[in-house]
Design a protein around this nucleic acid. Sequence first.
DNA 1: CTGTCGTTTATTTTT
DNA 2: TAAACGACAG
Length: 667
Amino acid sequence: MNPETQILAGLNGKQIEAVKTIDGPVLVISGPGSGKTRCLTHRIAYLISSGVRPENILAVTFTNKAAGEIKERIAALLENSPSSHRSSGRFAATPQIGTFHSVCARILRREIERIGYSRNFTILDEGDQASLIKKIMASFEVDTKRYNPRSIRSRISKLKTELVPAESYTGSDFYSKLVAQVYRTYQENLKKMNALDFDDLIGLTVRIFKSNPETLAKYHNLWHYILVDEYQDTSHDQYVLVSLLAQKTKNLFCIGDDAQSIYMFREADIRNILNFEKDYPDAKIVMLEQNYRSTKTILAAADEIIANNKMQMPKELWTENNTGEKIIVKETLNERDEANFIVYTIEELAAKGRKIADFVVLYRTHAQSRAIEEALIKRGFPYQIIGGIKFYERREIKDILSYLRLINNPSDIISFSRAVNIPTRGIGDKTVEKISFANKPGHSLIETADSLTETLSSDTKQKRGLAAFSKLIAALSEKAKKEKLTALIKSVIDQTNYEDYLKTIYAPSRDEFETADERIENLKELLTVAKKYDATKEDGLASFLEEITLLQNIEKLRDGNERITLMTVHSSKGLEFPVVFIAGMEEGLFPHNRTLFEPKELEEERRLCYVAVTRAKEQLIVTYSKYRRIFGTMEANLPSRFIGEIPTHLVRWEAGKDYEDEDVVEY
DNA sequence: CTGTCGTTTATTTTT
DNA sequence: TAAACGACAG
């Protein structure tokens, strides 16, 4: 078999069409379970086998996970097909595969000096962003009670996504004027501390490309073939970025599913995918409509649900799979009842031979997980919850990282203010503010702190603390130049006596959520990541920090063994499970209350429901509860309209069995 | 500067 | 309900 036929083997006609149309714009609409990743990876392999040099290919995804998966699968594909190219002497180059943010960060490390930042810039996460915005609001004496910093943050983010620069936005009404003012100061602050937020990664890249045609040309010459995954989730700035990059060759391949766009609230703009044909009139459109995942019943139900949406591309999903079981719908009395029903059903199905890992419980909001967890614990089932607390958001991780970030970027006031008082050195907001105020652009905060130390007359706690901190940072900075990351991180932990510090905070005084020991464990996890980094990458601290910041969750599964999975519907996108439970299918919860008055948002909820339903391979079980405790008060709910949208002949109503707790349930 | 206590406010979240 | 925040006293 020649490499080409080998790469195309096992693909259906549509998939082959999508893979083989290598020149010009291509849009692939891939229904759930239609082999999207397959199509994408085979296309990349096909490009390479037909003579395209790997380094001329750029593939952009939204998540690190997706990028990793694509890399792996391409490696496997090329392994199996010893194409003349790979073996022809040149050291195997690889295509550039990464998230929007990491690709842009890479570009910016090379190009950002053109717009007055330095290349060791810090990347702020959302928490840093929020606290900075809040501080700015406070400095304007804006009542942060009245004007929620979070919503200001999201307004600013929205503006940035729309590529509206701070300088040119003024705002019309009172609120947007406030937004404009905060936005401007915020941006000045970022510049001063040589920091970028997530939006800047995209926005500044676009700005450089627009203002420096020769820079853009460089990347045109590099990337001849561009592939974009999950195109329905691109925001305006990402859309512009892609358009710029693809401008020259127009070899743009976008794949996605408008029906699975569930991130509108994160500025995803569904119009990008709906207007592709307008943007590229000669585009080839391929519909992947054969589903390899679900039973006919599940697919039909999903199809009927989504048919209630107005905004969508028409498609005909079909499958050769069996009809399978009917969809089970169960009404329960309250959330504990619901949880018990789920657990008993799992028990029943497991007794019939289902593996524990076959089950997933999906819910609209994290808050729903607790009742289910409790029921699972009571019956002794192992489970894992996906999502929730992100690794890098953990206090202990942020603490240690703040030292590393400060060493990497001496202007990073956010990291400075965190590190300087960990462990407590008697230095609080007031002192930090003074230093921040006195600090001149281009000077390190430590220098400024040193001069402040000298002005302090008496030998106070502050004076000693500040001096000690300065000395520590100096020593660590030296270390950073010579030593590996793991050694550096260990030094930070040792020299700050961090473990002791943790133990004093989390002394068994009160029943803390997490003990000091658990937090120390997390630090070990950080060291593990650093170790991997030491072994494979030779570039330094800056790129490690970048990777950590852009890497939300650290893969902590490692035991792919028998566990029931619990997660929100959002985090289930792209996954599949033999048996899917959707819990809390109630009006007000799913669809969520806040979406009920905005048709666009209601349609997004419906797409979310569509995503949930199509995760199921063999069996779907939907539950809703008449009563549910929400924020402490008991509320009565009606079954979700989405249940009513499933044709009745596909449904079996589970009745009779009572799953109430033995304890008294009060209302 | 730090810890405590009442008050407030609750989606989803790839980076 | 519960966690997160801000005001206030030490």
